[in-house]
Design a protein around this nucleic acid. Structure first.
Lengths: 354, 354
DNA sequence: GGACGCTTTCAAAGCGTTTTGGAAAAATAT
DNA sequence: ATATTTTTCCAAAACGCTTTGAAAGCGTCC
């Protein structure tokens, strides 16, 4: 309704001191029920809302969480990231925090963190997409800026707070499923393997193979940005080769869709001639959740991860003395239409079947 | 380096007043070159960075742009949105602005705008995904909060600042291309038509048909959230019907991929048996840009739109007296592999061919 | 009837900037 | 040598809130 009413004006109208009004509004105990009521009423009537800059200056807390994202679009700056953000944003709103996004040139990423710390732009940050040679956590520790990692930083698992899915285990289980179905020539279309999550997925894949005495064929391993054409092109190339795979393990639904397209173009049938298992981040615009999902998948809600990461961070900010905490989530393995038994070709030597 | 140096401390070390130091750092003219140099040097050495909250309070400008996004995921909260955000974010960083994202329950959307205004959380906002019965602009005008619309608000085109692509014309041209190729049974898989952009696309489609004396078959019109299954399911349903379409006009690459999948499942070939034209927002993880793109498309970079919208808004904030401005962009019509002449079936009456 | 405790209120001092209104110093003009 | 302008700097007042430290009011206990 009314505009520009500040605390001074409001307290003046009430014949009260700013102190009392402030206390009344912020729920401090040392103010009588009657005054509190009066204050609330008048505040409502005049449409008073505290200026956030002033409050932030006075309290020394910025009530904002920073997310810095490098401008170049790699693995991270993709729909998965958005879904995570959405989840985190919900939590922030619920707790009265703001979300601050900084899109910066790659070269200025470190600078962005420094500024957040020195100019007090945020009370904490979320670190996205940790790489194998991650260093951001060192900087953040130095800056004394609370943070939570989405993913894990190799070698720093115990000294940082993070939330991650069990990537290794998910891909191990997926690979086992394919092996159980009789597939032995399995292609892995992974994300960029300098990223921690992709690295772990690779390990899960290899571990599962190794457990059955198999080792991956380098000709069937790929690592790249998870686009749709990436899936299609590699499916075409591999299926057109002399010793084609009978199954694909894919790191992202988007690429899996590409693989399916490639399979179709070769005149083959997904789930019959060639199997696909993909990881499914439960993105809202790529639902894979029918009664029988299109893709057999390992599924883990990245939106949920966002919510939890935010909660973790907020708790850290509230209690700075708290120990690093972490949340390790297991992905569900969900059977869909894209997998089936390995086609019986020139009987490959699958001896160790039980 | 050093931490917690504030202006007082810094000026003390320099034997200068806060005024002078502030002026030197902010590039005001009334300070000698020599002092400016000294100040800069010491500031650098002590790692001084002005506290943003304090600065904001003093200047009365929050140096932030707000984006409020309702929590429910409709047309908007999708990768297209992210790409727009990325574009806008680049511009903000370049100009020293922060981006503030608010993810709120749908019921609190209006509240979010009110808070941004009353608590001075942002100097302006971007309005995303205007609907046919849009009302947010009225609220924002009342709140006196500068804003730029991504898209157009029907009926308020001249009194608001906006940036949009020419949706109607893009779909008109796309439809004409199909008509020129001999297609007359064209399906339209549109976005949610209570959104302005979808509504315009529909009009472009209908106008093109009407110009050739044709009218759309209601059985071939769909409007929904632009997911992948949406494309596939409708392709299957329509192609399985008695009078199937020979071409699909689709509002999003994601759904177009679904359509292609459906076509494949029917044992048909995209670009030969059935044509597809889609709108392509130039999303980074869905490249459609090979020498001959997979999909014939109308293309318009939504990231660029984000940059421009941000520039527009920043200009409005700098000069509040400025008139509403707008940017109307035409989409490119790009020929890819997904279109071809209409298959000669039981010779439909295509008389008006020239 | 004074000391004590409890509740309720307040004046004033921050928080860390920018900005206003001068003033001292230096340069230029008369 | 004095008057006038220009350059360079400063002390203090915002900005709008929270918080500290103190005091007023009031009932109660010896």
């Amino acid at each position: 309704m009314a505009k520009g009413v500040n605390l001074k004006e409001l307290s003046h109208r009430l014949n009260l001191s700013q102190t009392t009004v402030s206390r009344a509004l912020n729920g401090y105990p040392e103010v009588s029920a009657e005054t509190r009521r009066r204050v609330a009423e008048m505040a409502d009537q005049l449409g008073y809302a505290p200026n956030s800059q002033a409050r932030r200056l006075a309290t020394g807390r910025s009530m904002a969480i920073g997310h810095v994202i490098p401008r170049s679009i790699h693995e991270m700056m993709n729909p998965i990231f958005l879904e995570f953000i959405a989840g985190a944003g919900e939590t922030y709103s619920k707790h009265g925090y703001d979300m601050m996004l900084s899109v910066v040139d790659d070269a200025y990423e470190e600078d962005a963190y420094r500024q957040i710390a020195s100019r007090k732009k945020a009370d904490g940050v979320i670190v996205h997409g940790p790489a194998n040679d991650e260093r951001r956590h060192l900087l953040l520790k130095k800056l004394n800026l609370p943070f939570v990692v989405h993913g894990r930083i190799p070698g720093a698992e115990t000294e940082t707070s993070w939330i991650d899915m069990n990537n290794r285990r998910a891909f191990e289980r997926a690979t086992n499923l394919l092996l159980d179905l009789g597939h032995t020539r399995i292609a892995l279309l992974n994300g960029l393997e300098h990223m921690d999550f992709a690295h772990r997925r690779r390990r899960g894949f290899e571990d599962a193979l190794a457990a059955r005495g198999l080792s991956p064929d380098p000709a069937l391993l790929r690592s790249a940005d998870m686009t749709e054409p990436y899936g299609c092109e590699n499916a075409l190339a591999m299926l057109g080769g002399d010793n084609p795979p009978t199954a694909f393990l894919v790191s992202s639904m988007i690429s899996a869709i590409g693989v399916a397209r490639g399979i179709g173009q070769m005149g083959l049938k997904t789930g019959k001639d060639v199997s696909i298992i993909t990881h499914d981040d439960a993105l809202s615009f790529l639902p894979n959740s029918g009664e029988v999902p299109i893709f057999t998948c390992t599924r883990s809600s990245v939106r949920y991860a966002g919510q939890k990461a935010a909660e973790l961070l907020l708790a850290m900010i509230t209690d700075p003395a708290s120990e690093p905490a972490s949340l390790h989530m297991d992905a569900e393995l969900i059977i869909g239409q894209s997998t089936g038994p390995a086609p019986a070709r020139e009987s490959q030597n699958i001896a160790a079947e039980n």
